Amino acid sequence: MGDWTTAQVQDRLELAAGVMRQMPGVMPQGFFNAWPEYFHSFADKVAQEPQMRRPRPSPRQITQAEEAMLWLRWLEKDDARLVWLRANGTPWKPICWELRISRATADRRYQYGLAVIVWRLNGKIPPTTRSMSYVIGRARAG
């Protein structure tokens, strides 16, 4: 892919979070169910709402999700946690309470985290001697 933008990175991280939610739960080794499988008769199913399930993610979606999750390695621990929580759709208030920061600080660190990922994906290393606003502004400018 050519030049990445913060919107593309944000979308990819949100898709990765969605893929991870759709994955089946992990069972411990040796887990089994001794109960026989129950087959519902027609009478059992009468007047019940059908349960719709989303299809399992494709191998390509899983690969892209794993790739996007590896991007979080480029961030500090708390910034990576904040970006992942936002990708999962967690509201700002619980994030601020969990990380013990203000809403403005959370938003600034979220934008900075996305900007660092954009810089790295575009083959550049974000300068550590410059301010957060400089890194964010240059990531948006392309």
Rank of each mutant, 00 (worst) to 15 (best):
Q8Y: 00
I125D: 11
P126H: 04
A68D: 10
I95N: 00
P127Q: 02
V116P: 02
T128N: 10
I62Y: 09
R81F: 05
W119F: 12
R81L: 10
K45D: 11
P57C: 13
E67R: 14
R21G: 03
V118I: 07
N33K: 05
Q51R: 13
T105Q: 09
A68C: 11
Q61D: 11
G89C: 04
P50D: 03
R86F: 06
D79T: 14
R103D: 01
V118L: 06
E37P: 04
T128V: 13
S102A: 07
R138E: 14
S133D: 14
E67G: 10
V135S: 01
W84I: 01
Y110Q: 01
M20T: 04
F42M: 07
H40A: 15
A87V: 08
P36W: 03
R53L: 12
G142S: 09
T129A: 09
R108Y: 00
T6V: 13
Y134S: 03
G2T: 10
V83L: 05
A68R: 06
Q10P: 00
E67V: 10
D3H: 10
V46E: 11
D107T: 11
S133T: 15
F39S: 12
Q10A: 14
R120K: 15
Q64N: 07
R81S: 06
A106R: 00
A80P: 03
W92P: 01
L99M: 05
S131H: 02
M69L: 15
M27W: 05
E76P: 00
P28K: 08
A17L: 09
L72H: 06
D78L: 01
D78G: 00
R12L: 10
Q51C: 06
Q22E: 11
S41Y: 04
Y38D: 04
E66N: 15
G25S: 09
S58R: 10
D79C: 10
D44H: 12
P28R: 07
